[in-house]
Design a protein around this nucleic acid. Structure first.
Lengths: 123, 123
DNA sequence: TATAGTAGGCACCGAATGGGTACTAAAGGA
DNA sequence: TCCTTTAGTACCCATTCGGTGCCTACTATA
């Protein structure tokens, strides 16, 4: 209780709403979890529609359940398209949206940094 | 560079040593959780040493415990310096390391993207 | 004297995350 | 008849994440 009161500062309320937000907190709310960024980046570098199974193989040892969950979240947030084909071996394709595509530069930069520094970092 | 080749499918070498590194998975392993990126970015934009309490107020409603935990992780990974002063109101200062500082461009880009797109995104 | 600030540590707890297995549907092939 | 493929869903479980409350040792201030 003491500490919650001490920190209650939170100057977010500006009156006009939605200003003064922390973009980093927004970002973590948008893509959180172990697999979110790897999936998103894979969809970005693949520029075209990709089937569920192929995506799962591309994102290495992710489980079916987790991939489904993340893709639905991305779809709901407008970062990924989902197209279902009424065929009998089921076919569902996922594709990055134009909005999601705008993340490319940022994620490239992140991947480059990681590739350059992975060796100096303690796991 | 390599990523221009787009879909190089992960070589799922499950049997031997794991050499199929994905920089994005490395990144998530490095900074994961709700508060990691906000803390790191705050330390980066503040270029100088900053005390624990001040940092906690800056990163808004983070708890003491979580801030301590993340800072220790960053210290262990060489992203943050931790200096303890043997004074009586205890004083501990944290500062981004040169290595951590190299993330600045990437995180700036990330923050810019988020600021530009926060309004179109469903929470 | 009483209280607050400082930078934590420690125990407890619920929520979120993520993995594993089993199951489904309809079609094709042996 | 059985097996396989595909994109899931349902259920169970372990781990992690993160919040709360309670403790310290000492000092400065009201």
């Amino acid at each position: 209780m003491a500490q919650a009161k001490a920190i209650e500062v939170r100057p977010v309320e500006s009156g006009n709403g939605a200003t003064d937000r922390c973009p980093m907190i927004d970002f973590v709310n948008l893509v959180s979890g172990k697999w979110a960024i790897p999936i998103l980046y894979r969809l970005i570098v693949t520029g075209c529609p990709i089937r569920f199974g192929e995506l799962q193989r591309a994102v290495a040892p992710i489980t079916q359940k987790e991939l489904t969950r993340q893709l639905r979240l991305f779809e709901h947030r407008g970062l990924v398209y989902r197209r279902v084909y009424a065929e009998m071996p089921p076919r569902v394709e996922y594709e990055i949206t134009p909005l999601g595509r705008t993340l490319r530069g940022t994620l490239d930069s992140l991947a480059d940094w990681m590739r350059a520094n992975a060796s100096h970092l303690i796991t």
